[in-house]
Write a protein that binds this DNA or RNA. Structure first.
Length: 485
RNA sequence: GGCCCCGUCGUCUAGCGGCCUAGGACUCUGGCUUCUCAAGCCAGCUACGAGGGUUCGAAUCCCUUCGGGGCUACCA
């Protein structure tokens, strides 16, 4: 016992990080934090045709935004770097050569077309598809002949007879017969390494102890173990594997663009809080065991264990995410809420960021905090306080042009004008006195008209507080203006 | 097709042989509260995929079956 835990998150940024990636990163991070171990972040960019610098940077930014800080990896460095596989090419080449020397691997001269033909035939014959081992034991003459033809070779790992059995921390013992694990390619014809080589070499060299990753990689585990063996790693030094269940879309299969938004950047723009995203994602495939659901990042670290992770896939439910986001927003301190809201207000063009604007926003936020679910609702809610050319919403106009409404507005104006103290208490007292008591109107009818006149909409934050914030002058001007509609 | 993984309310889950006439959360429906919208509170709807075993007793163990998913690349 006693080896310090080291967990890695090693995405291949071929696009923006999505919900599934992040759930994996979150579990990796939480497990590292739970055990007091190390969280390592590595970029798997061996597929240079699909990974771009922009995506790599976006992945780094996303992890940072979510608060999933890493101890080893890009930007922070560490003793086992570099952490971009594209910068470790010589290491992989060295190991590939060693495997070749040991006869664990061999050069394969088959062309893609030939391989494809073999697969076709296998499929037709209803046998397990895969490389048939044609180049396993080539003679010097055969090699010379292939080279003369101008063929280029890939390096293939030799899978011995037998099987690989390992214990997956989530699924239990899993076994693969090598009949179904064909010899696999380690190095492309152009000399560049493949995932199968790089991932195994790096996990060993970087001293990773736990590999928690998506279940799509479950069947690649025997290949990874094969590389460990060729590297001379003792079985007790293999990392522990745990394959996480998928996060799927609302209806059917894996999460996709059509199937709800998958890019974390989108959630950020919509006004989801990182803590809400993490809290929700943590509940997909894991639970604390009791009925707790709303947990903080600190609690997640404290409670997270691999044995509480499920083996079955989970569907992503936007409604539940929204509910949690609403909870998290309500739990924000005034200063935090202000900090999160300001960017949305400036981006929407509601404020420019002057001190007086910020002061007003700060005063107004408490009355909307429990009525929004996402931060991007803040601008719409507070717009009436800042808008220069105020106008009642088109479909609300007809609701205040009837006789009763006109009376309400006239009486309100008359009653409010003499007020020397302008706050929600004095406003409410004045309006209740004239509209409810004197006119005998139902509150929803009476205040509804005033609401439309002053905020422009049938839906608004609490009326009296809104009017207080708006100020006496503007409030009266808007009521007067409404009378002319 | 082959190999592998998976299967409790619509969704996320609790459950690891008796505490289960299956609990919680989200959604939905109804109600209370109420100046709108929310929030809050109360109530309701709805699940162990199917079939066989094992057992005094099964959501929990075994088998079969059906269904879903992954892999089957010089992607990861």
């Amino acid at each position: 016992m006693g080896k310090k835990v080291k967990v890695r998150f090693a995405p291949s940024p071929t696009g923006d990080l999505h919900v599934g990636n992040i759930r994996t990163a979150l579990f990796d991070w939480a497990y590292a934090r739970h055990t007091g171990g190390t969280f390592l972040f590595r970029i798997e960019d061996t597929d240079t045709t699909r990974v771009t610098d922009e995506y790599i940077q976006a992945a780094i930014d996303t992890l940072k935004w979510l608060g999933l800080n890493w101890d080893e990896g890009p930007e922070v460095g560490g003793d086992n770097g570099p952490y971009l596989q594209s910068q470790r090419l010589d290491i992989y080449a060295e190991w590939a050569q060693k495997f070749l020397d040991q006869k664990d691997a061999y050069h394969c001269y088959c062309t893609p077309a030939e391989l494809e033909a073999t697969r076709e035939a296998q499929r037709a014959a209803n046998v397990a598809p895969g490389y048939d081992g044609k180049c396993r034991d080539l003679t010097a003459e055969q090699i010379a002949a292939y080279k003369a033809e101008g063929r280029e070779a890939v390096i293939r790992m030799r899978m011995p007879e037998g099987s690989t059995t390992f214990v997956d921390e989530i699924r239990g013992e899993v076994s693969f017969d090598h009949k179904f694990v064909p010899d696999f390619v380690l190095v492309r014809a152009d000399g560049s390494p493949l995932y199968t080589l790089a991932v195994a070499v790096d996990d060993i060299l970087m001293k990773v102890t736990h590999v928690l990753r998506g279940e799509d990689l479950l069947s690649s585990t025997p290949r990874q173990i094969r590389v460990y063996q060729a590297m001379g790693v003792k079985p007790e030094d293999y990392p522990v594997f745990a394959h996480l269940p998928f996060v799927m879309g609302q209806d059917n299969a894996k999460l996709s663009k059509r199937n709800g938004e998958v890019s974390i950047a989108w959630y950020r723009e919509q006004g989801y809080l990182p803590e809400a995203i993490c809290n929700y994602l943590a509940l997909l495939g894991w639970s604390p065991g009791d009925d707790r659901e709303n947990i903080t990042m600190a609690e997640l670290c404290e409670l997270f264990t691999v044995e509480k992770v499920h083996s079955s896939p989970a569907r992503f439910d936007m409604k539940k995410l929204e509910a949690i986001n609403g909870d998290k927003i309500r739990a924000l301190t005034p200063d935090e809420f202000l900090k999160w809201s300001l960017p949305f207000l400036t981006k929407a063009g509601i404020i420019t960021g002057t001190d007086s604007e910020i002061a007003l926003v700060k005063a107004a936020l408490p009355i909307i905090q429990e009525r929004i679910v996402k931060l991007n609702e803040v601008p719409q809610m507070l717009k009436f306080l800042f808008i220069k050319e105020f106008a009642v919403e088109a479909d609300s106009v007809s609701k205040i042009t009837d006789d009763v409404s006109k009376d309400v507005l006239k009486r309100s104006l008359k009653e409010l004008e003499p007020l020397t103290t302008w706050n929600h208490d004095s406003i409410e007292a004045a309006l209740r006195a004239c509209l409810i008591e004197e006119m005998g109107l139902k509150p929803r009818i009476a205040f509804g008209a005033v609401r439309i006149a002053t905020t422009g909409s049938t839906i608004s934050p609490p009326l009296f507080e809104s009017m207080e914030l708006l100020g006496k002058e503007a409030s009266l001007a808007r009521i007067a203006a409404a009378l002319t509609l």
